[in-house]
Design a binder for these strands. Structure first.
Lengths: 144, 144
DNA sequence: TATTGTTATACTCTATAACTATA
DNA sequence: TATAGTTATAGAGTATAACAATA
């Protein structure tokens, strides 16, 4: 339970990064989740809400709220899928692209702060090791 | 904003570890914060609430709730400081020690899962690098 | 009947401010 | 007047379940 454990370090650092990013993004009236959503739309193009659910790993009702916010801010838009009118296709707007760029600048700043005491080689090493950490939720055997 | 950044990795991993630990500890009716509190009491002996506030970095009202829970569960006890009757001295009980041991077992399990794909040397390296990451809240110049 | 998305609701965590008692 | 701790309350964030539209 002490602060030396990797799990504890991850918890505390993750919490701090989240709080910091949340505070910075609140200037735009957005949260980290809004940012992830725009980021995914930018990388993958128009997407159904279902696939956003998979990527963001949030409750459907949470995604509805996120998309409502993005639509009200003019950053994204929902359209009916003509092939299956139950589905929505979510697409980001030009304004959304601009907002995403601003947000990426914000997180770049945080990133530089986090890594201020590490050499570039150490930072790469850290990135590599972190990507090898197995997220508890990842365990393929669902038996718990 | 993509998942490659260290900050994003920390956010996601930290969130997962927290969720996992919270779920496991709910068996005992406790949260990670209860665990940290007991852990600090174990390492440092009887402590004033003020110094717990510094270590846990929570709002005073949150600490009150944590200590109420621990007292109701018989895991810790508040006593008046005879030298300054405004102060409370918080002390863990034998039951508290037993509960802490159980919780440490839980987090050890999570820790092993997290590091399952890393060699012992990699795990040490990761621990070392993480401890060099500067938490955004740490910045000594409060100007923001 | 099953699926996509939505709404309404409740529950947890946290933050704020007002309060008590001691100094 | 200032400090240690407490209480009451409100605000986020999230999860649950019931619902409408479409397949």
């Amino acid at each position: 339970m002490d602060g030396e454990r990797v799990g504890m370090l991850l918890m505390h650092l993750g919490r701090d990064v989240d709080a910091r990013l949340r505070r910075q993004l609140s200037v735009y009236g957005l949260t980290p989740r809004h940012g992830f959503t725009l980021s995914h739309l930018c990388d993958n193009g128009p997407t159904s809400q279902q696939s956003l659910l998979d990527v963001l790993d949030v409750d459907p009702s949470v995604l509805v709220a996120i998309l409502n916010d993005l639509e009200n801010a003019g950053l994204a838009e929902r359209k009916r899928d003509p092939e299956d009118r139950r589905r929505h296709i979510v697409e980001m707007s030009e304004q959304g692209r601009t907002a995403l760029t601003a947000m990426q600048g914000t997180i770049d700043t945080i990133e530089r702060e986090l890594l201020a005491d590490l050499s570039p080689a150490d930072a790469d090493q850290l990135r590599s090791l972190l990507s090898k950490v197995r997220s508890p939720g990842d365990t393929s055997c669902a038996g718990d």
